[in-house]
């Protein structure tokens, strides 16, 4: 038995890859019902912030994710947009991240908005990509002061002033909430939006980046945060619409289980190999 365990110490990683692939495929193919715990403080904060937006209020969404972080950010964007559509709140979408971001945002939001009967230009606008290679701080600051000068056309090339919704949005003061969803949102949103104008800001980030932002949740500089697929799943439970986040959080369960099992197997193998080595000596 000990010799068999000792072989786990030098297990061929291909067996691990195979086991991981099987574990990740199972929840995507078979829907496994699992209990959903109550929403965390961070998720509840974002939900309450959206609930606090008045019916005639406008929300700004910075959707700066692309294919790399799509597995978590897509669900985070979907659930919040669905909530905004449920409450008939209008929203403007920008992308300060990568040049691909507006396209992913458009593909994610369009079906949800269409299902809710939202009219593009009147109820929602995708203002497209804003080049921020020179630094996020000046771009965020300038966007907050004069949106129309920084972003003069939407993603389709329509002059921004021609869109009915954008006639009501010139500065950040016309917006009730800013929701930034990307791989790792920049804290400069907090400095230049919440700090200067008092507009609440919320983040949607990858679960591995979330520990960086707990300080802002604690100090209430961030009104809320969705942490990976779990945050999206909790939010979907709050709006009573389980969707992509719920499904992907099941897959994340199995992925995390694979990591824990691999660590246990590695340690068992190490201990067994050490004992076998001592006995041999």
């Amino acid at each position: 038995m000990r010799r068999w365990l000792a072989r786990l110490h030098t297990l061929n990683p291909r067996w691990l890859y195979l086991a991981t692939a099987i574990l990740l495929i199972i929840p995507l193919v078979i829907l496994i019902p699992m209990p959903r715990g109550s929403a965390s403080r961070a998720t509840r904060g974002l939900y309450d912030a959206v609930e606090a937006v008045p019916a005639d209020g406008i929300v700004m969404i910075d959707s700066s994710w692309d294919q790399g972080s799509r597995s978590e950010n897509a669900a985070q964007l979907e659930c919040v947009v669905r909530h905004l559509c449920q409450r008939r709140i209008r929203f403007v979408v920008t992308s300060l991240g990568t040049v691909f971001s507006p396209e992913f945002a458009q593909k994610t939001i369009e079906p949800i908005a269409a299902q809710a009967g939202y009219v593009y230009g009147r109820d929602w606008v995708n203002a497209g990509y804003v080049q921020s290679a020179s630094g996020l701080a000046p771009v965020i600051s300038a966007l907050a002061l004069d949106f129309h000068t920084i972003r003069q056309a939407d993603v389709r090339g329509t002059p921004i002033g021609d869109l009915p919704l954008m006639k009501e949005v010139r500065t950040i003061r016309d917006v009730r909430l800013v929701y930034v969803v990307t791989y790792a949102p920049s804290p400069e949103w907090i400095s230049f939006i919440t700090g200067q104008f008092g507009t609440p800001v919320a983040f949607g980030c990858m679960s591995m980046m979330a520990p960086n932002y707990y300080t802002y949740i604690d100090s209430k500089q961030l009104c809320g945060m969705l942490i990976g697929n779990r945050g999206a799943a909790e939010y979907e439970a709050l709006i009573r619409h389980p969707a992509l986040g719920t499904r992907l959080s099941m897959a994340a369960s199995f992925g995390n289980a694979a990591i824990i099992l691999a660590a246990i197997v590695g340690n068992l193998g190490m201990w067994a190999a050490r004992r076998a080595g001592r006995r041999g000596a």
């Binding site: 020179s134 771009v139 300038a142 002061l145 920084i150």
Partner: peptide, 12 residues
């Protein structure tokens, strides 16, 4: 500020 930022955007 918006004009200066536009300048930065063009340069970048």
């Amino acid at each position: 500020l918006p004009s200066a930022t536009n300048f930065l955007i063009v340069v970048s």
